[in-house]
Design a protein around this nucleic acid. Structure first.
Length: 450
RNA sequence: GGCGGCGUGGCCGAGUGGUUCAGGCAAGGGCCUGCAAAGCCCUCUACAACGGUUCGAACCCGUUCGCCGCCUCCA
């Protein structure tokens, strides 16, 4: 069974599913107010990999990830553009899924939208108000963090020390009792999108949607709640607090991935402005290169994404492609059980994808050294890459146009006639056209340079 | 200030007491090849520093230095 570090306890422990054979997962998804950045690339790829690995391991995985389609930044953008929040949200959500597809990140089993859950959120807030866990402030309804025992679990700090670090100005915010309290319901300013509520027209606060949607779609005590490390506190803690206050059993386990950092080692952050566009990157590079890069870093470590490192990752992907090409004609074989076991052992040990990747490369090397084992090892490599890592290997002969095919035929003829000058000049021509040219056992083989 | 994490060779990055080596990328040399490409073989550059424990430490303990995260919107 896969072990992961549980943010709530700080310990690595095996998953212990609520229902045998099934694993329910909730991943905090995007706020669709702008283009996705590299950090989104990492969080989606790494947890998509977890999902694929668990599925491949035989679990029935239910994977839910939300879309926050109403939020202050979306309103700001709509105002700026003179369009509506739904237009802004729809546009960036489309860009989001398009980009995810380029990274081979599978769509979640459910993609709940905040705007579709407003009624349920109002119900939860009303419930929290009635039980004294929430109160009316000047511009909305706030959650009383101090009303929940153990608040601060995911920050691994107690309320007192968190309070010391909190911004003092927050204290003066409209009627908040504690700087740690957060908005459950924001009353609408004139012109802002609004939904009816007992406290007046407004919109839900960000921390409420995930509580309602995860419990609705996965049920109480779901197995795993995932997200970026920066969400552990306060976002996830605030979700947890609401669930606890409402008397619900919330996520049984929490796992958080490390941040993408810039060249200086500083976290990419919208407020710092050092973010790099994910759609741009996906256009310039093979999406698999970023995927490989994410896999080469342990999920909890900070990760740097630079041109140099991306190209190194591309080199690794190329090596796997070459192996897939070499072995495509070996015929079907059962995946090598020893290799699969080593791969799984790495993955199960706190999701050590870099270690698991090393097992894959060792199998590649072994397959070349021992041809008798090649079919089984090749099958295992393919299985691990495609089913667990979500890395599609390109083992097929690429489609080339008629002109290219003609050049290949002419080159083979020249080589057969030992006319090296002609053969070399045709090779140069093909290379200029952007192909890699190799002489295989059956003649010239071309493939498009990445 | 509180809490947490990290510092491994040119780059990325595993490894938690002991052997032959993580792995990938890059570099140099060789084999193969008509020449290449791919592949294979060999080589090179390590464990932040200082102490301690131990027969033995990258790995355990302590100290120091440096970097980062969270405590504020954020994946």
């Amino acid at each position: 069974m896969l072990s992961l570090l549980d943010t709530a306890t700080g310990k690595v422990a095996p998953l212990d599913p609520r229902d045998q054979g099934r694993i329910s997962v909730y991943l905090c998804g995007p706020t669709v107010s702008g283009s996705p950045h590299l950090g989104h690339g990492r969080v989606t790829v790494i947890w998509d990999t977890l999902r694929r690995y668990l599925t491949w391991s035989g679990f029935d995985v239910r994977f839910v990830s939300n879309v926050t389609d109403i939020e202050d930044k979306i309103i700001a953008r709509a105002t700026e553009e003179g369009s509506s929040t739904s237009e802004v949200a729809a546009r960036y959500e489309a860009l989001w899924w398009e980009t995810m597809a380029a990274l081979n990140v599978a769509r979640p089993d459910a993609e709940p939208h905040a705007t579709a859950y407003v009624d349920e959120m109002v119900k939860l807030v009303a419930d929290l108000v009635s039980t004294g866990h929430a109160y009316r402030g000047g511009d909305g309804v706030y959650f009383s963090t101090e009303s929940v025992p153990g608040y601060g679990l995911l920050a691994r700090q107690d309320v007192g020390t968190l309070r010391v670090g909190a911004r003092v100005e927050a204290e003066r915010e409209a009627g908040k009792r504690s700087p740690l309290d957060f908005a459950l319901w924001k009353l609408a300013a004139p012109g802002e999108p609004a939904w009816p509520s007992p406290w007046g027209p407004g919109r839900p606060g960000w921390h409420t949607e995930c509580v309602v949607m995860s419990l609705d779609l996965l049920g109480e005590g779901f197995d795993l709640h995932l997200g970026g490390l920066d969400l552990a506190f306060p976002h996830h803690e605030n979700e947890r607090a609401q669930a606890v206050a409402a008397g619900k059993v919330f996520a049984r386990r929490w796992a958080h991935n490390g941040m993408v950092v810039d060249e200086r080692g500083e976290k990419m952050s919208k407020s710092v402005g050092n973010i790099t566009s994910l759609p741009d990157l996906v256009q310039r590079y093979d999406g698999r290169a970023l995927r490989a890069l994410v896999l080469q870093a342990h999920y909890r470590s900070p990760m740097n994404v630079t041109v140099e490192v991306l190209e190194q990752a591309q080199g690794a992907v190329d090596r796997l492609d070459t192996f897939a090409r070499e072995t495509r004609d070996l015929g079907p074989a059962a995946p090598d059980p020893g290799m699969l076991a080593r791969f799984r052992a790495r993955m199960d040990a706190d999701f050590d994808t870099p270690g698991a990747l090393a097992v894959v490369f060792e199998a590649v090397r072994d397959a070349r050294a021992e041809p008798a084992r090649a079919p089984a090892l090749a099958a295992a490599v393919r299985e691990c890459c495609e089913k667990a890592f979500g890395l599609r290997l390109r083992g097929e002969q690429e489609e080339a146009g008629l002109e290219v095919m003609a050049l290949v035929a002419r080159r083979d003829a020249a080589r057969a006639a030992r006319d090296w000058a002609a053969a070399d000049s045709i090779r140069a021509q093909l290379q200029d056209m952007g192909f890699v040219v190799e002489d295989g056992p059956h003649g010239t083989v071309v493939r498009r340079e990445r």
